[in-house]
Nucleic acid binder design. Structure first.
Length: 268
DNA sequence: CCTTAGTCCTGCATGC
DNA sequence: TGCATGCAGGACTAAG
């Protein structure tokens, strides 16, 4: 499941390949993968030139020369590949053709991922909170929410309106590094601990970017490569295994329908 | 307004 | 081995 570091890795890899290029044609195999009218989508992209590719939260954003934007959200199983593998063919949803030699294949098993076109007059991704890549920003967001909500901290970290880009894996990792139990209400966390969390969250995200993201099952970079950060996870997916810090068994609980892994001793 | 539960989708793991 | 069940979850929507 691509979160901020995975999307950042994909953008870094694609940037030199797509900036300055124009869409020659678009082939839609699954209309569900398009947010909006597929015909209008195809027509608007055709012969449109990409001026810039960037990331915002978990979205890939293509700036187009006419002022509009294309966004792609990969959700759980979405991939953007230059050369789909044999197993990918069955799940090919959209093909973006640039020229005879170069196309991008949007492959998505679960059909949750979406491509969306944003007209120039629309504000791009208006509901997203700030990027969680520097600690003063994260601290400001969490402190200001502290008096406004009764929700638990894990839920807040996953809320894209609060901070954009954090998903289940890095939320759990940051809470472990910050020594905070995922089920703690934000309003009950002391400022010093919020400060700690604000420092470790940007740090873990940047470290995961350096490691080209976490590949557990589906995530792949456009050249079909895997990430390395799965080898550095402290708690995510480690239920029943000993904590690297204290040896206590890592537990798993459910918060808002999502698995949350934590060390009951380090995050007591 | 705020918060929670249900929905989408398909492969995979589990149990009998 | 086969079949049924349930689990995984990001973001949206409906309901409380």
């Amino acid at each position: 499941m691509p979160e901020l570091p995975e999307v950042e890795t994909i953008v870094n890899e694609l940037k030199p390949l797509v900036e300055g290029k124009s869409f020659q044609s678009i082939k839609i195999f699954e209309t569900r993968s398009i947010d909006g009218n597929p015909r209008e989508f195809t027509a608007a992209l055709k012969n449109n030139k990409i001026t810039k590719l960037f990331r915002r939260g978990k979205y890939l954003c293509f700036s187009l020369i006419n002022g509009s934007h294309l966004t792609i959200h990969l959700r759980m199983t979405g991939k953007l590949l230059q050369k789909p593998g044999k197993k990918d063919k069955k799940y090919l949803r959209v093909k973006l053709v640039f020229d005879k030699k170069f196309a991008l294949y949007f492959v998505d098993i679960r059909k949750f991922g979406k491509l969306k076109l944003w007209p120039e007059k629309d504000v791009l991704l208006p509901a997203l909170g700030p990027e969680p890549l520097d600690s003063p920003t994260v601290f400001k967001v969490l402190i200001s929410l502290k008096t406004k909500t009764t929700r638990v901290v894990k839920t807040i970290l996953l809320d894209q309106h609060a901070l954009a880009g954090v998903g289940n894996i890095y939320a759990d990792e940051a809470l472990f590094l910050g020594g905070i139990h995922p089920q703690t209400q934000l309003c009950r966390i002391e400022d010093a601990a919020i400060k700690r969390l604000s420092q470790v969250l940007p740090r873990i995200l940047k470290r995961a970017i350096k490691n080209k993201g976490t590949t557990l099952s589906d995530y792949q970079t456009p050249d079909s490569g895997a990430g390395d950060h799965q080898h550095f996870l402290k708690v995510y997916g480690r239920e029943g295994l000993p904590c690297y810090t204290c040896g206590t068994e890592i537990l798993r609980t459910r918060i808002n329908g999502r698995s949350s892994y934590f060390c009951p001793r380090c995050q007591g």
